Structure formats: C-alpha cells, structure tokens
Computed example of a mutant assay.
Amino acid sequence: MTSVAVKARVTGHVQGVAFRTWARAEALRHGLTGWIRNEPDGSVRALLIGPAASVADMVRRMGRGPGAASVKDVLTEKTDPETGIKGFQIVG
C-alpha cells in the first residue's frame, strides 16, 4: 500500500485543549505515523503519513478536533513521506 504525506496547520482555539494528545490517539488508531506540535502563533502543525483514505479522514477529524477545541481552519499541503518515522509523536 502506498503512503501519502500531508502537512497540516490547524488554526483556532487549538492549544491548551488537549488537541495534540487527542490527535495522537486518533492518528495511532488509524495506523498513521508522523508528528504534531504547537506553533508560537497559537496554531498546531502536524505531519500525517499513511494510506490516502486514512490521512484524508484524519484531516477531516482535525477539522472538528476534541470537544474543547474550536477549529477555525485546517490548511494542508502534500509533501514527500519522511522515512524513519515510527509511531506518531507529540514533538512540541
């Protein structure tokens, strides 16, 4: 199965609401690899790697976020899958 990779930037009220922890659990549940981190501007950035349908579903889920989040937008761009990434990590 071919993996795709997408970088996502989630804006809105997405820090301080367990967004990264929620996203990590969702990504692992769907067999994705990658990472997620807080950005200084208040957004959250993620790298999602996996089957195209699973990545697309995760992007949709990130558009809703966990209950305490208020997502304004999810901007995505395709990228080359990074090799050597194992699991899904919260990196910052």
Rank of each mutant, 00 (worst) to 15 (best):
Leu48Trp: 01
Ile85Thr: 06
Phe19Thr: 01
Thr76Ile: 12
Ala18Lys: 08
Thr11Gln: 05
Gly42Thr: 08
Val6Ile: 08
Met1Tyr: 01
Ile49Glu: 15
Gln89Trp: 05
Leu47Cys: 07
Thr2Ala: 14
Asn38Val: 01
Lys86Leu: 14
Thr79Asp: 04
Val71Tyr: 01
Thr83Asn: 13
Ala53Trp: 03
Gly67Arg: 15
Gly42Ile: 11
Val44Ile: 06
Ala5Thr: 04
Ile49Val: 15
Ala5Ile: 01
Lys78Tyr: 07
Lys7Ser: 12
Ala18Met: 03
Met62Tyr: 01
Ile49Phe: 02
Asp73Arg: 15
Phe19Val: 04
Leu28Asp: 06
Arg24Cys: 02
Ile85Leu: 13
Arg9Met: 03
Val10Ile: 12
Asp73Tyr: 08
Met62Val: 02
Phe19Cys: 04
Val74Ile: 06
Ala68His: 09
Asn38Ala: 04
Asp80Trp: 01
Arg37His: 08
Pro40Leu: 10
Gln15Val: 02
Glu82Trp: 07
Gly16Lys: 03
Pro40Phe: 10
Thr33Cys: 12
Arg9Thr: 12
Pro81Val: 04
Leu32Thr: 09
Val17Ser: 07
Leu28Glu: 15
Ile36Trp: 00
Val4Pro: 10
Gly31Thr: 00
Thr79Glu: 09
Pro66Met: 06
Val4Ile: 14
Leu47Glu: 11
Ala23Lys: 07
Glu26Thr: 06
Ile85Phe: 00
Arg64Asn: 04
Arg29Ser: 14
Gly16Trp: 08
Met1Gly: 13
Ala8Gly: 02
Ser70Pro: 02
Gly42Asn: 12
Arg37Cys: 11
Pro66Val: 01
Thr33Phe: 10
Leu75Asn: 10
Ile90Asn: 09
Gly34Arg: 04
Ala52Val: 00
Val17Asn: 09
His30Lys: 15
Gly67Cys: 05
Ala23Cys: 13
Gly50Cys: 08
His13Glu: 14
Ile90Lys: 06
Lys72Ala: 12
Met58Val: 05
Gly87Met: 13
Ile85Ala: 01
Phe88Pro: 14
Ser70Phe: 07
Lys86Cys: 08
Glu26Val: 09
Val14Gln: 09
Asn38His: 00
Ala52Ser: 11
Arg9Gly: 01
Ser70Asp: 14
Thr11Ala: 07
Thr2Phe: 03
Ala25Cys: 14
Thr2Glu: 14
Thr21Trp: 13
Pro66Ile: 01
His13Leu: 15
Thr33Val: 12
Ala18Phe: 13
Arg24Asn: 00
Arg29Tyr: 05
Gln89Asp: 10
Arg24Leu: 07
Met62Leu: 13
Gly67Asp: 15
Gly12Ala: 08
Thr76Lys: 02
Glu26Asp: 07
